[in-house]
């Protein structure tokens, strides 16, 4: 080891004085490479790269490979005969189409509702109302709770006979409705519960963005004669675009992963008809039916859906030099 260090030092010191007083660098490419920042910083970026590469990107790659096999049961996959049969099976499976439709509805409605409700809450809180801080905490609190906990709450609250939701609307002579049992209502009920949990999060994002807008702009809008609605719509909201974009990305990704909420509400991988999403379908195919390859194909589709959402965002961020 000592000798190695001595040799490296000798290589490093092998510089000659140039005629103009500087030094010349006569080291070979390999030696220059050995001396580069890239290699010298390797101990720092290397381990995370290896771990991420192996456990994230490697796993995704392996998942793709699995989806091309006909692996089912416990025999182990056969990689010699690869094909796209699982993907064509997905196209022909009506349950997949239903799950995809539900996934997309969940995604779109949930995201838009959260963005809208969060904006309203943020604007109200930004008006310096009394107990503003307390309200902020109250609205944000559901976000701090785990899906498993909130799902249990909602399971109780949606109960047909004793649930508080039916008790409440009963005061107005409505219901009772079978919120989690009726195929026509179940997806809406799930989305409502998710919006309740996540609108506090969008509110905080908006609130931070609102607070960073200089007071002068509010005043200028007022002086120019804008009403409250007009001021927000024309002057303030357009400046919230970056906040909206990043909140949207997070919300969409959460919507794609709504699996744990559904798992807890329906006590298993099989949601009621009308609320099946790709994630629950994937789990059922894998762990109920041991259809590992088919399950992998569904998983990869879900991954591509997520990528379709996040890629444009990453690209624009990269273009703007934010990454």
């Amino acid at each position: 080891m000592k000798r190695l260090v001595a040799i490296l030092r000798a290589i490093r010191n092998k510089r000659r004085i140039r005629t103009d007083g500087g030094t010349t660098d006569e080291r070979s490419t390999v030696k220059r490479w050995l001396d580069s920042d890239f290699l010298q910083s390797a101990p720092f970026w290397g381990p995370p790269l290896i771990l991420m590469g192996l456990f994230v990107y490697g796993a995704i790659g392996w998942n793709f490979l699995l989806s091309l096999t006909d692996y089912s049961g416990f025999g182990g996959p056969d990689y010699t005969n690869l094909g796209l049969q699982n993907y064509s099976r997905m196209v022909q499976d009506p349950a997949i189409w239903e799950a995809t439709w539900n996934t997309v509805v969940l995604l779109v409605v949930f995201t838009i509702a959260c963005l809208a409700l969060g904006l309203v809450l943020a604007i109200l809180l930004d008006r310096e109302i009394r107990f503003g801080r307390a309200f902020r905490t109250i609205y944000l609190l559901p976000f701090a709770l785990s899906f498993i906990v909130t799902a249990q709450f909602w399971r109780w609250m949606y109960n047909v006979n004793d649930g508080i939701v039916n008790q409440f609307i009963g005061l107005f002579g409505l219901g009772p409705y079978n919120w989690l049992g009726d195929p026509r209502l179940v997806l809406g009920s799930v989305i409502f519960a998710l919006v309740w949990q996540f609108s506090g999060y969008t509110m905080v994002i908006y609130l931070a963005a609102l607070r960073s807008i200089p007071t002068e702009q509010y005043e200028a809008a007022r002086v120019d004669g804008a009403g409250t609605f007009r001021m927000y719509w024309r002057v303030i909201v357009p400046q919230l675009r970056p906040a909206i974009v990043s909140a949207t990305v997070v919300l969409v990704l959460f919507a794609l992963k709504a699996f744990d909420f559904l798992y807890a509400v329906f006590d298993g991988y099989r949601p009621r008809q009308g609320a099946d999403i790709l994630a629950t379908k994937m789990m059922r195919e894998g762990f109920n039916n041991s259809e590992w390859a088919y399950s992998s194909a569904i998983g990869l589709t879900l991954f591509i859906l997520s990528l379709a959402v996040i890629a444009p965002y990453l690209y624009t961020q990269y273009k703007r030099g934010n990454l």
């Binding site: 399971r155 109960n159 047909v160 006979n161 079978n178 049992g181 009621r272």
Partner: peptide, 9 residues
């Protein structure tokens, strides 16, 4: 059967 049959275990 009970009204809440679809949502209870």
């Amino acid at each position: 059967i009970n009204d809440d049959a679809a949502s209870v275990g």
